[in-house]
Amino acid sequence: MKIYNQFWWKGITIVLLIYTIIAGFMMKVPSMDILNETIRNLYFHVPMWFGQITLYTIGVVYSIKYLLITPSENLSTENKFKFDIIARSAIAVGTLMGCLGLLTGMIWANYTWGKPWSDDPKLNCTAIGMLIYFAYFILRGSMDDVDKKAKLAATFNIFSYVLFVVLIFVIPRMKEFSIHPGNGGNPAFAKYDLDRNMRLVFYPAVLAWIFLGIWITTLVIRIENIKLKLAFKD
């Protein structure tokens, strides 16, 4: 049985998620100015982004696979389309997690910075990253030919992934000023206030949200695979 169909990691996901929610709301957190209890959002907001990046990476790997592998005896055309399905589903779920990350971030910002959206390099870059992936779906929607759709979407995905990574990881760090932790000379949480107790929840939370994203993706892939099988039958 393939690893993504096995039960054990889904069990771990459920346990870790329950642990994240219970321990995230119950355990002691360091009391800090301005942040106060909102620091608990760290267990939800930050892991969402980890999940998004993981899923986008899966997406780009399968896009490259789709472009490089040609159908042969070992691989039918139908199976080649499965790469496209994996890439598309991973990006869709990744974008969903990105939206949730933005949403939780905005709630957090509302209580700490005073308003949901400030003019900040990190926020702007993230918004642009989301726009790029919305454009990916608009590109897919503009075509009818399935083969062409998969191929052009895969090439666009490779370009956009490279630019997305540059935007998310390089540009926010080069700006002199940012209010977001971890950028522009601002220390990240890990530097001084992520104490041992918080790490006990934070690392499991990261794993839990990444696994949850992958789990949802596998479900979407299964639905899409059934649709593909039906399409090939006709």
Binding site: N124, C125, I128, L131, I132, F134, A135, I138, L139, S142, M143, K148, L152, F156, S160, L163, L167, I171
Partner: peptide, 20 residues
């Protein structure tokens, strides 16, 4: 150009990248 005959698609695809 390969995807559709719609000129605004170029702007939609490239503008998000162009902003930063």
């Amino acid at each position: 150009g390969k995807a559709s005959k719609n000129a605004s698609l170029t702007a939609i695809l490239s503008l998000p990248v162009m902003i930063p």
